[in-house]
């Protein structure tokens, strides 16, 4: 068993295109960009849909449930941590960290749920933990 410990998270630097994403995170919500034209979700958020290229995207609050698509525990780090791609129940895949977990019992396909971790002087950052 190798339980994770929380490391310091550098603050993400928002811009006009993304500030609503981080404002949602500050209120405990994960907001994913959804296209009003082709209805597809995408990530990271863009003003123009990367699929149909229409400037018709808006925000959709998602469930925060997902499954691990891939992960790796960075053993050679001062505080080892798990980086991962998590595929949300809504279908889109995000780069994230898996926290508050046993590094030795993670597996691809595992169910995970959304949690937030504070960053250093910035908004909380969405992460995932075993469901």
């Amino acid at each position: 068993m190798t339980m994770s410990t929380r490391r310091k998270i550098p603050a993400p630097e928002a811009n006009p295109e993304t500030s609503a994403y981080w404002a949602a995170a500050a209120s405990g919500k994960l907001a994913i960009r959804e296209c009003g034209h082709c209805s597809k979700l995408h990530h990271y958020p863009r003003a123009l849909c990367p699929f149909c290229f229409k400037p018709a995207t808006g925000w959709r609050e998602v469930s925060g449930r997902g499954k691990i698509y891939a992960y790796s525990v960075m053993r050679r780090a001062e505080t080892p941590y798990a980086i991962a791609y998590v595929t949300l129940a809504e279908g889109v895949t995000l780069l994230t960290n898996l926290i508050d977990c046993d590094f030795d019992h993670l597996r691809i396909g595992q169910e995970v749920k959304l949690v937030f971790q504070d960053s250093e002087g910035g908004p909380p950052v969405p992460m995932f933990t075993p469901a």
Partner: peptide, 12 residues
Amino acid sequence: QFEYPYAPTVAN
């Protein structure tokens, strides 16, 4: 901003 907070490295 959607990657650096999660500490992606070349290796991981």
